[in-house]
């Protein structure tokens, strides 16, 4: 069991013991197999900060993002948004709450309905929320949103596939901001964009955060981006939180987090160091691991690690680690 961090007033989102299971297979004489995509995750997202979640693909980052917004129902555990337990909200209350929590998706190419013009896509949030607008109000809203994300008003009547990937992602961001949310989940918002466009989108997200006082949960597998962009970094492995780094400069002390962040390419040859290579294979996500998920590949693993799951312990300063034998 992880230790639930105490709720503080400055936390916008508090996640406690969150677990989501998926099952697959099953049929005549074949058992259903269950995997835990997210396994007992406890985490808080401080207000006005960027919390990054990193990990390899398949480690449960995207599932976590969807659980936090209740786009998926949790198997167990709770997500509290601004002190309200999301699972306890009725459909109507949830609809109202969604105004405050929005998401920017990984794939801008399919994030907008191909039959919708940009104008229609940007007005949809108001339509869905049952907010009637006059033609003049609608025009003002769309104009404002479009200029907020740095698009030209000429694009209003365009269809999504007349835009580039970066432009589409800007539309995705504008739509997420339409209802003036306080909390934005960014699910790898730059993963399907060119490197030069990535930088523009990150700059845009950074300035919007300052301008609108937003709180971000930033899901990514791009380590250098996370280090650059995030105030806190959560390292996940096989659905579990391995380490929470309080700042971009904090040195990882978990063996997995260390190896992961170490694998980041250093452009300056003088600063390059020997990279820790990990042996072994990632265990099957269907396997039940009684101990530490990383024990099979960890250089410091002991019998204890294979037997007993290390709790997420506080090292001070909000630096949390789930390891029996942390690095010095």
């Amino acid at each position: 069991m992880g230790i639930a961090p105490a709720t503080k007033d400055d936390d916008l989102v508090t996640i406690t013991g969150l677990t989501r299971e998926f099952s697959s297979g099953g049929g005549f004489l074949r058992p259903r197999r269950t995997m835990r995509a997210v396994n007992d995750v406890s985490l808080d997202v401080p207000r006005g900060k960027v919390t990054g979640v990193v990990g390899e693909s398949g480690c449960g980052k995207s599932t976590l993002a969807r659980l936090v917004l209740r786009l998926l129902e949790a198997t167990t555990g709770t997500v509290e948004f601004d002190g309200k337990d999301l699972a306890a909200q009725s459909q109507g209350e949830m609809r109202k709450l969604r105004r405050q929590m929005q998401m920017v998706f990984q794939d801008p190419y399919s994030a907008i309905d191909p039959r919708y013009t940009i104008r229609r896509a940007l007005l949809e949030p108001f339509q869905v929320q049952g907010e009637a607008q006059t033609a003049a109000e609608a025009k003002a809203t769309v104009d404002e949103l479009i200029s907020m994300v740095g698009l030209s008003p000429r694009m209003m009547e365009s269809f999504p596939h007349q835009l580039s990937g970066g432009q589409k992602q800007r539309v995705g961001i504008a739509r997420a901001l339409a209802l003036r949310p306080t909390f934005l989940v960014l699910d790898e918002p730059t993963a399907s964009l060119d490197v030069s466009i990535q930088a523009q989108i990150i700059d845009l997200l950074e300035s919007l955060k300052e301008e609108l006082g937003l709180t971000y949960l930033f899901i990514s597998h791009d380590l250098s981006l996370v280090r650059y962009f995030c105030d806190r970094v959560v390292v996940m492995y096989l659905g579990r939180v391995m380490e929470i780094l309080p700042g971009a400069e904090a040195r990882p002390r978990h063996h997995y987090a260390h190896a992961l962040l170490d694998s980041n390419f250093e452009p300056d040859p003088a600063r390059r160091k020997v990279v820790t290579m990990l042996g072994g294979e990632i265990p099957s996500p269907f396997a039940t691991i009684p101990g530490c998920a990383f024990a099979a590949r960890c250089p410091a693993a002991s019998e204890l690690c294979k037997r007993e799951r290390p709790p997420l312990a506080d090292l001070g300063n909000g630096h949390m680690i789930a390891c029996h034998h942390p690095m010095d």
């Binding site: 786009l71 459909q91 969604r98 929590m101 998401m103 990984q106 309905d113 869905v128 739509r175």
Partner: peptide, 24 residues
């Protein structure tokens, strides 16, 4: 993804079926 995005805007089944799924 746009179905998920619309859900996240607070849309119900009716809106998703009649405004997104059936037209496409």
């Amino acid at each position: 993804t746009y179905v998920e995005a619309t859900t996240n805007l607070g849309a119900g089944h009716f809106h998703i079926i009649f405004r997104h799924l059936l037209p496409n």
